[in-house]
Design a protein around this nucleic acid. Sequence first.
DNA 1: TTGTATGCGTTATCAC
DNA 2: GTGATAACGCATACAA
Lengths: 335, 335
Amino acid sequence: MERKSSSTLHDVAREANVSIATVSHVINNSRVVKASTRARVEEAIQSTGYRHNMVARELKMGSSGLIGVLIVDYNPFYTDVLRGIEKRLETMGYKFVVASTGEQWERQRELIHLMVARRMQGILIAPVAGFDAEYVTRYVPEQCPVILFDRHVDGLPSVTSETRNATRQLVEHLAHHGNRHVGMILSTDAISTMRDRQSGMEEACGELGLKLSIERTTPDDRGGYEATLRLFNRFAREDQPDVVFAANNVMLLGVLRCMKESGFSVGKDRSVVGFDDQIWCEVFEPPITVLNQNAYGMGEAAVDLLKVALEGEAVTSKRLPVHLTIRRSCGCPMN
Amino acid sequence: MERKSSSTLHDVAREANVSIATVSHVINNSRVVKASTRARVEEAIQSTGYRHNMVARELKMGSSGLIGVLIVDYNPFYTDVLRGIEKRLETMGYKFVVASTGEQWERQRELIHLMVARRMQGILIAPVAGFDAEYVTRYVPEQCPVILFDRHVDGLPSVTSETRNATRQLVEHLAHHGNRHVGMILSTDAISTMRDRQSGMEEACGELGLKLSIERTTPDDRGGYEATLRLFNRFAREDQPDVVFAANNVMLLGVLRCMKESGFSVGKDRSVVGFDDQIWCEVFEPPITVLNQNAYGMGEAAVDLLKVALEGEAVTSKRLPVHLTIRRSCGCPMN
DNA sequence: TTGTATGCGTTATCAC
DNA sequence: GTGATAACGCATACAA
């Protein structure tokens, strides 16, 4: 049974002795077909090995039913967002296509081109450092709404986390434990999340009278490790931060590693707090106190905004609350 | 500047006073065009807001340059594989499309249909429980090669991990520490990885004279927790397993949680070993000994096999070595 | 209940 | 150098 290129409606029609219109209609159930001819057609579909060609259909119909999603990396946070997107999109009857851009605007730009070239119905983007909102607005046609998530950029609607409140709660809690000096580890401030986390912390520490020292590094565990070291080396032993706050969960691992090697007991000698909850945070000894974003909900919300945009209505950005999960790494005696 | 649906080659051609053929050629650089007309065309492309339509191009050319990838879930293992796939595909000039199936054959089947309907050039699949290789072979046209990864199924080429050797090394190591009884936590044996991990362990324990007790559960951390409990309850205190081996990294977390709540000191009272390395495994106290698959390499290898298949040559399945990473949770005094 | 014919936006084969 | 024009595989308005 040799078939070079997949057979077409024509082949099926010829085989079944009907017109291609009829074949098309039995496939799409788009008009009444006599049972006997339908049977003949279905038989022919089998015997010719016909496979529906969505790309032809797409061209004809002018729409793909596909949503493009651009994430920065396949890290646990974004994959949780993805799950939320997937779930919500499913109920809308859309499929989606993911691609990761790394923290590179050039690559993200290329992928945006690809998405519009493939006539996606909408694009969900986690914008990278250097993201040019004006360019994107100009480039992407209006019928293809763009919704940002995780990070906000002026000029486009987005769904992001509201860090301020939770950070305030956290700092109150830390102050309550008697902490006086927080060391904060951030990556580049070309990303809105990092700026927000920083300003939230500055505000809270300012109001509550805690000293704040900031250290910037690469957003990986090695960066977390080295930044912690620098944070401690900047001060005499008695002036060192008593709590280290890592602005993402992978730098957090580096902080923890550094604590371990430096012989500090987390939760006793020094407090540690992270951003984004992972399963291991709970199992760790001591369990890690974290500022927890609603990643799954962010995915859902992004799709909800997209839906609004697709219906032609005006969309407004959304901020999701961040939850403070207190465990023991912050120095809490028990929980 | 209103444009309803994106403009086409025709619009550009009209605007530039040339034929659509010329426009097509300047876009694709597919034949020599006088500099002045090229300039006029490029100008027109700008002014009409033309965006290349890949779906039309695809229909005409009969190929999409897209590879479909079906993973079970967006867990750390599969996302590592994804990174390998992405990297390798990039050098081949292909883009790819990911979708997750959950452990549901129905869903996987649907997505396979979707992939062929969208005329993917090839499909990379992590087959789920219930995967019907015969069906897939019959359904997917020959021009669209299918390569399995992570799990093998008779009848289709795959790239999987070779567990036997590393397991043997592990058991030797454990026996060396004086362990006599290993408790193994597995999920369903409808998946080849679980069967392989089991048979590898049975073989090694048999040869080295260790007792083996198996407990099956759901592949999440709660499953790991409950299975550990059952594993201990099955025996009188003195006959309980002295080492618990979790067949994946998320069940491992459950095991660890159970150890903690039961008051067992990992690495002293009981040994714990996991499958698949994660960053946290190293930072954990004690650091976790694991059997470490080469996830990234698996992605690369899958693409390599695909490449061979795409070139029309016969492909043979590949098995990647698994590496035993000894840390301290297995009871090693130091490392 | 079924068939004919047109066009979706390209690329490619001719011809000029 | 450039321009007509025929497919690609499908959905559908219009006929019959």
